[in-house]
């Protein structure tokens, strides 16, 4: 292990990243008839005002179901997507305006691990070449030192050093995910955004990769944003969680506190819906009724109100703000307590 990869530091409360009011829409294609008929451009509301804080050295779990915008959020944070509005700050500095050299420097600090272990590696590059490329493009090491550092990176993710000469298709899903992690670590980031990094893997292999994330975070002092739909997993590895629903964060707080006493009815439903491995905890009742609404035409007011068992008239019109409401952590639900900020009809 080379000393320069190690960046151990105490977990501080200082935010390393802040996300403020992030909005991202994807316009849908319009037919000629739509254009001639003067119909408005329809768009998928992927993110409608997401605000988050990520603390240095922590794992923030972002959970939600399909269409909640969690993957779009991940891609906006590494600038694979350009948000329409809002701000992302990294160590206090604006990220969205960065261009050229500054943008590459930002990406060195904030890396991503992808979901699909088969799609995230270039099939024509050997593992060694893929890692060496990341090292040489950023001139992290040069010349003869490259091969040595590739070996160290493979050690770090517990792959044998001879893996460097092999190609992605020669590895299993779990091993490929290790390669993806090693590639992200090559540029010595301080934040890793992992977008469903284990959901394509079998349970027993998932545990191997989860342990690797835990270990690397400990050894390298990484900050981890872990995006997943798996509540069991997120509870296990996150210090704090943010629950997303239809392009919004509806509740965010310390993981165990939120799991023990969720304040938002959606969080409660989500936790109740997870099948328990303990056969004695069976319930015949549905955790929540109804379908996920379409992100093309999100409901007005609180996005969860059409499925909410306790919705009141104001939920249909007034968008609840994500504020503490007299409790220990912020929640976007009118019924959790009075808002400590103005709310708007939408």
């Amino acid at each position: 292990m080379s000393g320069t990869i190690l960046k151990s530091g105490p977990v501080a409360d200082a935010p390393i990243m802040t996300v403020d009011g992030l909005v991202k829409t994807f316009p849908l294609g319009r037919s000629l008839a739509d254009v001639l008929g003067g119909r408005p451009v329809r768009a998928v509301q992927a993110l409608s005002g997401v605000s988050l804080t990520v603390r240095k050295g922590e794992t923030l779990g972002v959970v939600g179901e399909s269409g909640c915008g969690k993957s779009t959020l991940a891609r906006c944070l590494v600038r694979l997507h350009e948000p329409d509005a809002g701000a992302v700050r990294f160590e206090g500095a604006d990220v969205l305006g960065l261009q050229g050299y500054a943008r590459r420097a930002y990406n060195r600090s904030v890396q991503m691990v992808f979901q699909d272990p088969y799609g995230s590696l270039n099939p024509r590059l050997s593992v060694g070449d893929a890692l060496a490329e990341a090292l040489t493009v950023h001139r992290i090491v040069e010349g003869g030192a490259v091969r040595e550092r590739v070996g160290e990176l493979l050690d770090l993710v517990h792959l044998p050093r001879d893996a460097a000469d092999r190609y992605p298709h020669e590895f299993s899903g779990g091993q490929r995910q290790r390669v993806g992690i090693a590639r992200a670590l090559a540029v010595e980031p301080s934040v890793i955004i992992a977008d469903e990094p284990v959901s394509a893997l079998d349970v027993s292999v998932q545990a191997q990769v989860v342990n690797l994330f835990l270990e690397l975070q400990e050894r390298l002092g990484l900050t981890l944003i872990f995006i997943t739909h798996d509540l069991r997993l997120v509870r296990h590895i996150s210090h704090r969680i943010a629950v997303m629903y239809l392009g919004k964060v509806v509740e965010t707080g310390d993981t165990e506190a939120v799991f023990t006493a969720p304040r938002h009815p959606y969080t409660r439903a989500l936790i109740a819906a997870v099948p328990q491995v303990d056969p004695h905890q069976r319930s015949a009742r549905e955790a929540v009724r109804g379908e996920l609404p379409s992100p093309i035409a999100p409901p007005p007011g609180c996005p969860f109100h059409p499925r909410c068992p306790i919705a009141e008239p104001q939920c249909r019109t007034v968008v609840p703000a994500l504020v503490p409401r007299g409790g220990p952590w912020p929640v976007a639900c009118h019924l959790a307590g009075p808002a400590d900020a103005p709310e708007f009809i939408a």
Partner: peptide
């Protein structure tokens, strides 16, 4: 749209490199 092309962008690779090394050979 492949993730390895996204990964190359996130790794800060130049567009010529992405086109010639990651897309063209495949």
């Amino acid at each position: 749209g492949q993730d390895y092309v996204s990964a190359a962008k996130v790794l800060g690779y130049g567009e010529a490199r992405i086109l010639l090394r990651h897309i063209l050979p495949n």
